[in-house]
Simulated assay, not measured.
Amino acid sequence: MGVVSERLRCCVCGGSTDGAEDYVLVELTAQCSDARQWLGAHAEHLNSVLAEGFSVEVHQI
């Protein structure tokens, strides 16, 4: 899960992701900086706001 030690709230709905089977963790970086931002989301919610042609799939490992 990267440097995030606990589940984050869904960045789309603001709801809890505890126990969600479709939880995804997204890392954002900037080319001109070492800054990193982590976002948690329900995959279904993230898919609802992504541009056409982009989608998130959850694979259990």
Score class of each variant (00 low, 15 high):
residue 1 M to V: 15
residue 1 M to L: 15
residue 1 M to T: 14
residue 1 M to R: 15
residue 2 G to A: 14
residue 2 G to N: 14
residue 2 G to H: 14
residue 3 V to F: 00
residue 4 V to T: 13
residue 5 S to W: 10
residue 5 S to A: 12
residue 5 S to C: 10
residue 6 E to D: 10
residue 6 E to G: 07
residue 6 E to Q: 13
residue 7 R to P: 07
residue 7 R to A: 08
residue 7 R to M: 06
residue 8 L to R: 05
residue 8 L to P: 03
residue 9 R to L: 13
residue 9 R to Y: 13
residue 9 R to P: 13
residue 10 C to P: 00
residue 10 C to A: 01
residue 11 C to M: 07
residue 11 C to E: 07
residue 11 C to L: 00
residue 12 V to R: 04
residue 14 G to D: 07
residue 14 G to K: 09
residue 14 G to E: 07
residue 15 G to P: 10
residue 16 S to N: 13
residue 17 T to I: 01
residue 17 T to K: 06
residue 17 T to P: 03
residue 18 D to P: 00
residue 18 D to R: 13
residue 18 D to A: 14
residue 18 D to N: 12
residue 18 D to M: 12
residue 19 G to C: 06
residue 19 G to F: 04
residue 20 A to W: 00
residue 21 E to L: 08
residue 21 E to C: 00
residue 21 E to Y: 04
residue 21 E to D: 12
residue 22 D to P: 05
residue 22 D to R: 05
residue 22 D to L: 05
residue 22 D to G: 01
residue 23 Y to T: 04
residue 23 Y to W: 08
residue 23 Y to C: 06
residue 24 V to L: 02
residue 24 V to S: 03
residue 24 V to P: 03
residue 24 V to M: 03
residue 25 L to P: 04
residue 26 V to D: 06
residue 26 V to C: 12
residue 26 V to T: 11
residue 26 V to N: 08
residue 26 V to A: 10
residue 27 E to D: 06
residue 28 L to A: 12
residue 28 L to N: 09
residue 28 L to V: 11
residue 29 T to S: 12
residue 29 T to C: 09
residue 29 T to A: 11
residue 30 A to L: 14
residue 30 A to H: 14
residue 30 A to T: 11
residue 32 C to A: 15
residue 32 C to E: 14
residue 33 S to L: 09
residue 33 S to D: 08
residue 34 D to H: 14
residue 34 D to L: 12
residue 35 A to S: 13
residue 35 A to N: 13
residue 35 A to R: 11
residue 37 Q to W: 15
residue 38 W to A: 08
residue 38 W to N: 07
residue 39 L to S: 00
residue 39 L to Q: 01
residue 39 L to M: 08
residue 40 G to A: 07
residue 41 A to M: 04
residue 42 H to G: 05
residue 42 H to T: 01
residue 43 A to I: 03
residue 43 A to V: 06
residue 44 E to D: 13
residue 44 E to T: 11
residue 45 H to S: 05
residue 46 L to I: 00
residue 46 L to K: 00
residue 46 L to Q: 02
residue 47 N to Q: 07
residue 47 N to T: 02
residue 48 S to P: 05
residue 48 S to C: 03
residue 48 S to T: 01
residue 49 V to A: 03
residue 49 V to G: 02
residue 50 L to Q: 06
residue 50 L to A: 07
residue 50 L to E: 04
residue 51 A to W: 04
residue 51 A to P: 08
residue 52 E to F: 07
residue 52 E to D: 12
residue 53 G to W: 10
residue 53 G to H: 03
residue 55 S to Q: 09
residue 55 S to A: 07
residue 55 S to N: 08
residue 55 S to M: 02
residue 56 V to L: 07
residue 56 V to D: 03
residue 56 V to N: 03
residue 57 E to N: 07
residue 57 E to V: 11
residue 58 V to F: 02
residue 59 H to K: 15
residue 59 H to R: 15
residue 59 H to S: 07
residue 61 I to P: 15
